[in-house]
Design a protein around this nucleic acid. Sequence first.
DNA 1: TAGATTGTTAATCGATTAACAATC
DNA 2: TAGATTGTTAATCGATTAACAATC
Lengths: 217, 217
Amino acid sequence: MKKISSAVIRRLPRYYRTLKEMEREGIERTSSLAMGQRMGLTASQIRQDFNNFGGFGQQGFGYKVTELRGQLASIIGLDAENGYSFVIIGAGNMGRALGRYTRFSREGYRLLGAFDDNPAVIGTEIDGVPVMPMEQLVDFIRQNSIDIAVLTVPASAAQNVADMLADTPIRGIWNFAPVDLVMPPSVVVESIHLTDSLMTLTYRMGQCGEESPESAE
Amino acid sequence: MKKISSAVIRRLPRYYRTLKEMEREGIERTSSLAMGQRMGLTASQIRQDFNNFGGFGQQGFGYKVTELRGQLASIIGLDAENGYSFVIIGAGNMGRALGRYTRFSREGYRLLGAFDDNPAVIGTEIDGVPVMPMEQLVDFIRQNSIDIAVLTVPASAAQNVADMLADTPIRGIWNFAPVDLVMPPSVVVESIHLTDSLMTLTYRMGQCGEESPESAE
DNA sequence: TAGATTGTTAATCGATTAACAATC
DNA sequence: TAGATTGTTAATCGATTAACAATC
C-alpha cells in the first residue's frame, strides 16, 4: 500500500468521529460535500483522502454512513480481534486520569497494569488495576503481550523509561512527557505535548484582533 | 505582521522547549544546524521559521541560546505582564489532573477557579481553588477577567458550555472534549483530542513492519 | 433517462529544502 | 583575513483544490 501522509492519518479519527455522530443522529447516507461542510473541509479533500485506501462510495449516491464508519474503523485498526492492551507508566494525576477515562475502553483499549516508583502509590488501584513497582514493568509487558505503553512520568525520567521499553515487545508509546523521545523505528511514538498545545493557544490569542490593521499610510 | 502558517506556530513551543533544555545543559550558543540535528529538522527550515519574525542571529556566529529563548517567549506571548489566568470547566478526572499539573503555573498560567454541575464535587478543591457551580461561571469570568477556559466536560455538554463562554470576555478555549467546537473568531480554540491521538498511534502501529514488501512479481 | 456524486487527473497553492550572497 | 553561519531568494516537493469523465 502506498505511503499515507501524516496529514491524512490525522484526519482519519476525525472522519470516524464525525461518522459516529451521524449514526447517532440517525443519518444513513452522506456525501463528501455534506461531510465537508460539517467538518470544515472541501469535498475534494475528503474524496482524495478516502481514495488513498480505495473507493468506498457509490457514484451518484454518496456513502453509506455505517458502512463507511466500519471501513474507517478497519483502516485505523479498531477492528482488531481483542482490541489493544495498555499499561500506564507513572501513576500521578495525569496517569490516573487517563486510566479512568472511559472512552478508551469503549473503543477496545484495555488497561492491564500501572507502574510507578513512588511507594505511596504502589499497591493502590486505578480503575481496578493495581499500581506495581517499576521493577516489574518489563516482565509484565513481556508476560502479558502489552501493545501500548502510556507514558505519564516526569520529563526527566521519560527517555530512561523509553529505553527500558525498547527491550520489550511493546508496539507503541503514547507519550505525555514534554520531551521528544528517541526510539527504534519498530516502536511507534505518539506524543501529547500539553504545554506546547497551551502555548499554541496563547500565541494565537495574542494575534486575535490584530489582523491586517488598515495600514495607516 | 504577515500571516504565520499553523505549521510554524506548532513548532514555536518546541523551539522554546529545546532552548530551555540547552540552557539547562549550560549551552550558551547554538546554530540552526545544531538545533536542527537535535530536533530532527533541517537548518534551512529553522532559519525560515525564525525569519518569519525577523532575524535573531548573527551571521557567522549563530544564536545566543538565552537571548533566542527570550525572543521566542515574547513571540509566543509568555512575557505577558501577569501571565494568564484560567478556569477549569468540568472537575472530573481530567480537569483535576490538569489543575494540578505544575508545569503550567511555572510558565505563568494561574488557575483561578473550577466549575462543575455535580453537587458531589462542588465545594471540593483543586490545587487550593474551589469547585463552584456552573451557574456562577459566566459572572466569575467577567469579574475576574479570565483569559482561558479549560474545557473538560463530557462531549454532550461541550458545545453548550462553549456557547455560554461566547458571551464572556474569555479569549481562548483549551478543549479536551471530543468535539469540534464552533465559536466566533474572537475566541481562539485549541483542542486536545485524546482519542484521536490514540487512534493515530494505533493506525501507525498497524503499518509498522509492513513497509514496501518485495513486491512478489 | 436525467441528475447526482464519485473516483481520478490536472492545476494550484503552500511549505520545505537548497543555494548563495551578505556579513559577523 | 579566513571561516562560519546567517538571512533570503530560488527550486523543489507535497498537499490541497478544481475540474470532469465515469457511472450509479
